[in-house]
């Protein structure tokens, strides 16, 4: 079985299949995280300003901060979830890239 399989070529195929998925993921996620991080910081600055100007109480400021934190944490959770989906895609693309070669080499459908 192993003699029929060109392992370096298969590894190269797997990496070639994974690369565009990783690049697309980063291309989509980076601007999103940057935008939301900026938004989070702007909102925190606004809360601080409102507190300094006595437009909100300390309790209200703390509630607002907690709300903004939860909101930003949701962004991070979504990014984590999208990351898991990206890993899943990479694994499936990598398996897909070597499927034919492996199945042909062993003579029956393993992958």
């Amino acid at each position: 079985m192993a003699t029929n399989l060109n392992l370096p070529a298969l590894a190269k195929d797997m990496l070639s299949a994974a690369k565009p998925i990783l690049e697309n993921y980063w291309k989509e996620v980076k601007p999103y995280v940057e935008k939301e991080s900026k938004n989070f910081l702007q909102n925190l600055a606004m809360i601080a300003k409102l507190k300094i100007q006595d437009k909100i109480s300390k309790e209200e400021a703390l509630l607002h901060i907690q709300i903004q934190r939860n909101s930003f944490r949701t962004v991070l959770m979504a990014v984590e979830g999208l990351g898991i989906l990206m890993v899943e895609n990479v694994l499936n693309a990598a398996i897909g890239a070597i499927r034919k070669a492996v199945n042909t080499a062993i003579g029956w459908t393993l992958l």
């Binding site: 939301e36 938004n39 989070f40 909102n43 606004m46 809360i47 607002h64 709300i67 903004q68 939860n70 909101s71 930003f72 949701t74 962004v75 959770m77 979504a78």
Partner: peptide, 12 residues
């Protein structure tokens, strides 16, 4: 502030 937080949350 609330609108911004909830919009971000739902969008995510």
């Amino acid at each position: 502030l609330l609108k911004s937080a909830f919009e971000t949350q739902y969008t995510a």
